[in-house]
Design a protein around this nucleic acid. Sequence first.
DNA 1: GCGGAATAGATGAGCCTTCAACTAGAGTTC
DNA 2: GAACTCTAGTTGAAGGCTCATCTATTCCGC
Lengths: 167, 167
Amino acid sequence: MTADVSLAPRDPGSDAEGTRWLDAEEQQAWRAWLYSAQLLLDRLDRELTHATGISHAYYEILVALSETEGRMMRMSELADRCLSSRSRLSHAVSRLEERGWVRRQVCPDDGRGQLAVLTDDGFAALEAAAPVHVESVRTHLFDQLSPEQVAAMRDLGETLLRHLGPR
Amino acid sequence: MTADVSLAPRDPGSDAEGTRWLDAEEQQAWRAWLYSAQLLLDRLDRELTHATGISHAYYEILVALSETEGRMMRMSELADRCLSSRSRLSHAVSRLEERGWVRRQVCPDDGRGQLAVLTDDGFAALEAAAPVHVESVRTHLFDQLSPEQVAAMRDLGETLLRHLGPR
DNA sequence: GCGGAATAGATGAGCCTTCAACTAGAGTTC
DNA sequence: GAACTCTAGTTGAAGGCTCATCTATTCCGC
């Protein structure tokens, strides 16, 4: 309805600075995307956190580790995989270490490097959380969409990824 | 490529708990959406913050206020409009007050209520930030998409909104 | 193999968000 | 109109994220 850039059309058409304001159609599309993205991310994170005590950010770290050979990964690679800054990941791994779910290990190949290693407890926590999370994603996303919409979602996501990432 | 729920298919098809795991197609769609949403939100917030000193969260508060008659709104209504908790909004408005962009005022109709009022300085800050933000949204979103994709984005967003919100 | 630049990661301060109280005014019932 | 309950909003503590800074190691050129 109202859009977060609707300040714009007070000087419609051409603007002193030539700003390419959004028209009404674009604003509706933008708002719909923004609101739905914020609500969905928030909902999924909340349900996961409340049901399992694992935030979505932590969950992604555990998943990334669980998928590798030996359940371990270099800190930087893990950060990239989780769309996280190095600092953020470093803090997060410290907290996961306190829970006993991850452990740090010096990287044999590179004395500067550290390997984050998923512990058995960490793996067990992930196994317990995964069904909850999948069900959440189904309920709030896939169950709401037709197959065509799922295909459109994928196409949209991949198009944007080509521009924004993969880093 | 790898999905954050790919723990799933280790016991494909039927599962002890009957979890409806995602298949490969669904995982790719989900990952594409998740990554692109995170990257886009992050990018927009960063560009706005670095260029103007206003985070996207603050920006939305200022916009919501700027769109009302008298540039003022009840705290609760403002929180709903910004998809924010009351607590979060209360803290945020306090910080905006320190910047002199918003001011609080007791609500005449309801002694419990507060009105958040956008100041002239606040409006000026918003006017300065808006072109930057719109350009950012154009560059990273609309410029990347065909008209069909924009339509699909809107359809997707609205479909999800019917399920998730508007409250 | 020495000196400088680049890379990997950690750390701490400051801000933001969440959650669980808590205050205060409105509405409701008898 | 007193007592209960409900709603509006604030507050403070605790944890999370960002940014700037710092240390340790490797890489590169000579």
